[in-house]
């Protein structure tokens, strides 16, 4: 089941990466990043079977960082929405020069 877990994790990560590259809605892109973090967590849990409990401890840290990232990222999205009235990344191009 270890190989299957790692393969599933890779597939979920790829789907998340494809989502980040193909969507324009900033909130959906954020959720795709969460999916990628989840895929990595699955790898950690599966490998903790073979290499010891450190993997599961690391999953806790990944979840904490994900929570912090979601809080700050969504605050940024709210701030952008207040200025631009949109979360579509096509219209948010201040850094394009």
């Amino acid at each position: 089941m270890l190989a299957e877990s790692l393969a599933l994790s890779a597939v979920l990560f790829s789907i998340g990466a494809i989502g980040v590259l193909t969507r324009r809605n900033a909130i959906v892109i954020f959720m795709c990043v969460e999916l990628m973090l989840n895929a990595v967590n699955l790898t950690f849990v599966a490998l903790s079977k073979v290499y010891g409990m450190a993997g599961q401890v690391f999953v806790i840290f990944v979840m904490t960082v994900a929570a912090a990232e979601a809080a700050v990222g969504l605050a940024i999205i709210i701030a952008i929405f207040r200025h631009k009235q949109t979360v579509n990344l096509e219209n948010i191009n201040l850094l394009k020069g």
Binding site: M1, S5, N38, N41, L42, V45, Q56, I60, A67
Partner: peptide
């Protein structure tokens, strides 16, 4: 899957936090 991989606590945290 976490529960099936014997990471029960991680499974619970996944449902609660994520």
């Amino acid at each position: 899957l976490y529960v099936m991989l014997e990471a029960q606590f991680i499974g619970v945290i996944q449902v609660l936090v994520y």
